[in-house]
Nucleic acid binder design. Structure first.
Lengths: 228, 228, 228, 228
DNA sequence: TATGAATGAGCTTTCATTCAT
DNA sequence: GATGAATGAAAGCTCATTCAT
């Protein structure tokens, strides 16, 4: 059949990528068939292989590109800001806004890591660790400066990121709340959580919390982050 | 051949259920084949159909039973406690401990909702809403009493549940931190978050909290984070 | 569909094996599709996988079983015979008769070694070496006893086996010649070849032969035994 | 881009032909893909169709050209020689040398006849019959003159050609034996075979044969049996 | 002359499921 | 309660081939 005038490989590649994101978001990687994907972009399924080597690398490309984008943009947003509290606010706002505008990508990156094969998963997990590292760094810095009350920065990092990322499970554009309102709500929870419920300036004596009273911890065999 | 004395259908059914949980946890519902499952329990794949109608209902049964168990136990734990802050602490502790001892079930219930068909998903989502309702009720009650600073109880509910549930993404039994320490860390984040950084007047003595008082919820027979 | 009364797995397995031999013989391994094979035995193509792991092992099983059968029967036929000339006659007769009754198997074993993957090919080549070893042993023994004129037993072995095996390229049962006549004809060629033939009267001076005179047939631009 | 000076269609056609021979030799016709072939010569697979009509005619062209070359050169070598024994020697030497320098072509012509479609195969089989006819004529002539002992010239023809052709299953240039030595060895087997009834006991003095007169052989690096 | 996008058919293989025994 | 033979659909993927540019 004659090609549509103006159609070209790059355009098709982009269409495939977008359709892939959409379908994996909707059905899951395992449940999405390449025939579906091909139909979505108006191709025969075999023709897809001009654009990727196999289904697995399609997923990997999507996830890796997303993670690199996420990481890069987060670093850009944080650049030049020194104060831990300010950095934390920026991080929250960035993370939330990014997730609200990239629902599908984010959802995939979180849900389909299991579908990546060993080698690919390692790459993605590495990127994720770097991203988590941004937040962990902020928390440690804030704790060191006495502005945050964070006992276990690693755990707090996982907790906060889980909380913020969870937005992609319910947010739909055009809902009752504006993005700003959502950002404010989440940010308040996070800031409150790490500042320990105390007024920030005259920091309440931390001793009233019972948490620090059991320092007998096992030697520190860092819990391997999540399943691989 | 004579069957092993004492072996019976109920036992096989239970074995299938457990193997199902393990394999879905490990590979995902779509990626788990009934051949695998049958092999795991020493049957032919066709024989599984004595125990369930089809793969889909196996998943549904697992998820629904889990959700009902979760909901029932949460309600039981909260029964009789009136103070919103105490109720919140109980909820957090319950949720975390439950998730730490039922990693696989919890993981499945969160990840495989997408794999349920319309009707089944509706049932599970209903149960989930009821469970979320518990937390939302606590937050609203606390806000009404002026003890919590929560602007959007619904959003806060999603946020907190996401945070707490996220534990099943990284927790492995036997890690550096005890369950108590983890519960404390997460709880502090939650309480801090919802008390908005306001000093909670004269903070009630922490000893009245029931959280640490039942550390032996059930004899950790949960199959560990599967890795074959 | 109800199974044909009396049909069973063993019967189907045998039918598949035979149909496999027939189709590989007729079309070649690469050119035979499993759909064809399944149709030949009245199954769906997927059902074949009850009987073999994959197409490759079907081929391997056929070839290996054939080679072991060939080797075993050859050794049996030669057992107890000492005289090299007698052994050679027995070997020729055995080889020819076996090939005339197992045309397809033999053809496959010779033509499809290339289609076996590395590991399988190694096994088959090993069996083939053992079989060739039988003939080589006979030739060496005869040469040692002065009854054969064989300069290069290895080369002679290859040569003779190629000659004898070639029968499967033209023989069809029910042709003009009986199996006995064919055996006699080939055997005479072999025996004559290794016993050096009659003193050909006054043998013409070899110098008149043009063979050695043009060693530079063309500038060896032939791409060498390819291996990329 | 400007084409390399001097590059042209004929050159590309030749490159395709050679790459085709190489790849069919290595993988077999069915197993060779046109993508592979195109890659080998630095083209897109679609571009190959400027040089042949389809995969099948590529094979046919290769085989037919080879057969015509073989036939023509054989006739040329035999031209002018009358004596049957001399003609037989020439035929053997020619056949062997040709095969040793054209391993791939010869291998293909023997193995891939099955891959030719009906019409093409008929042409090739016709050429092969003419080639076999050369040897059969020699054998009949020799038998008529009483110099050969050949009962069934047709069978003997097949047998001898199979024997000689078999060299392409194991010969690799640069092996222990020189081409001359190989030719001598095979020729002795053939001549012995057709002159047959040598009295075994009073074995003619071997000295009259020139074959043993060149003992200067390379150190014995056993030629690896055939391709693996 | 060559590209590169695309086709459409076909491949091997896996799967959930059925059912006579 | 369980087997094991079989189905039928669908999967991911490769292929020879076409054709506008």
């Amino acid at each position: 059949m004659a090609r549509t005038i103006g159609s070209n490989g790059a355009r098709t590649a982009e269409a495939i990528r977008q359709a892939g994101v959409k379908l994996i978001y909707k059905h899951g990687y395992e449940a999405m068939s390449l025939r579906q994907l091909a139909a979505e972009v108006g191709l025969q399924s075999g023709s897809l292989y001009k654009y990727f080597d196999n289904k697995q690398t399609l997923l990997f490309d999507i996830v890796r590109d997303h993670m690199e984008d996420l990481l890069g943009k987060a670093e850009a947003d944080l650049a030049g800001i020194e104060d831990p509290l300010a950095r934390l606010r920026v991080f929250c706002a960035f993370h939330l806004r990014y997730h609200m505008t990239r629902l599908a990508h984010v959802f995939i990156a979180n849900m389909e890591i299991r579908s990546l094969d060993e080698a690919h998963r390692a790459v993605v997990v590495g990127l994720r660790r770097r991203y988590e590292g941004l937040l962990e760094g902020i928390l440690r810095q804030g704790a060191a400066q006495g502005v945050f009350e964070v006992r276990e920065p690693k755990v707090a990092t996982y907790a906060i990121i889980s909380m913020l990322t969870g937005i992609c499970m319910w947010y739909l554009p055009g809902g009752r709340l504006s993005q700003d309102e959502i950002v404010d709500t989440y940010t308040a929870l996070v800031i409150g959580g790490v500042t320990g419920g105390a007024p920030l300036q005259p920091l309440a004596a931390p001793t009233e919390l019972p948490v620090h009273e059991k320092p007998t911890r096992r030697p520190a065999s860092v819990p391997k982050a999540a399943r691989t």
